[in-house]
Amino acid sequence: MTLFQRLKKAADDEWAAYTHHDFVRQLEAGTLPPEAFRNYLIQDYLFLIQFARAYALAAYKGRTLADVTQGLRGLSASVEETELHVRLCARWGISREDMEATPEHPATVAYTRYVLDAGNRGDLLDLHVALAPCVVGYAEIGARLQPVLDDHPDHPYAEWIAEYASEQSQQLAADAVAELDSLGARFLPEARFGEVAETFATATRMESAFWQMGLELADAER
């Protein structure tokens, strides 16, 4: 069992609530209100800016060239991922500048700053554990939702699903799982597992709160 699998098993309820959230179920069905998706995309763009900073912190905290390289890959992937958000939001006439001018929602602030704090106060393992629910969870969701595109090629959220079901996203997730194993061998005495598992569970709960934010912002617009 990989370290990620152990962390996921320890946070089984939180993981299920995150990966099968009502936002995700509605997105899969194509019934998610466009305003919920739009608000989510804007906040996720702001989220990715902070995640790029977190990966830059991972590179800084790296003790080996491999550590630094992994951090740089995550930083680059986060920046590249913003292009999806730019393309999708452009359909509503929302520019990159408009997104960057939008205030961060408290859920965005809470999650991203929690991850950055985990990295600042802890070691490289703490930081990658806090990052893992996002990069691995989105790939898991994308892979699970991908078959719906075979039956519904005109699915309203096809581009989002295809992005996270893509080979690139799946490889990023696999790399993140392998990195956790590598770091666990270096930084994780068994007595510390509970502490690391709580970081993972907390970050996973914040993923659920991020989906919920999208739904609530849409409700507020009605």
Results as ranks from 00 to 15, higher is better:
138 Y>H: 08
70 Q>I: 10
58 A>F: 07
215 L>R: 06
66 A>K: 15
37 F>C: 04
169 S>C: 09
40 Y>S: 03
36 A>F: 05
161 I>M: 01
71 G>A: 08
202 T>I: 06
159 E>W: 02
153 P>C: 09
222 R>E: 14
173 A>L: 10
15 W>G: 00
204 T>I: 08
184 G>R: 02
63 R>D: 12
33 P>R: 06
202 T>V: 12
195 E>T: 14
62 G>W: 04
86 V>R: 09
6 R>S: 12
119 G>F: 04
108 T>H: 08
78 S>P: 05
163 E>T: 13
86 V>I: 15
80 E>G: 11
2 T>K: 08
153 P>K: 07
152 H>T: 13
201 A>K: 02
109 V>T: 15
22 D>E: 14
138 Y>V: 06
50 Q>H: 15
127 L>W: 08
1 M>D: 06
197 A>P: 04
43 Q>G: 11
113 R>I: 07
186 R>I: 05
131 L>F: 12
60 Y>E: 15
10 A>H: 07
72 L>S: 11
35 E>P: 00
202 T>C: 03
16 A>V: 11
178 A>C: 02
177 V>N: 04
48 L>S: 06
59 A>F: 14
114 Y>D: 06
185 A>Y: 02
157 Y>W: 04
68 V>E: 10
153 P>H: 06
106 P>D: 07
56 A>N: 11
14 E>T: 03
8 K>P: 00
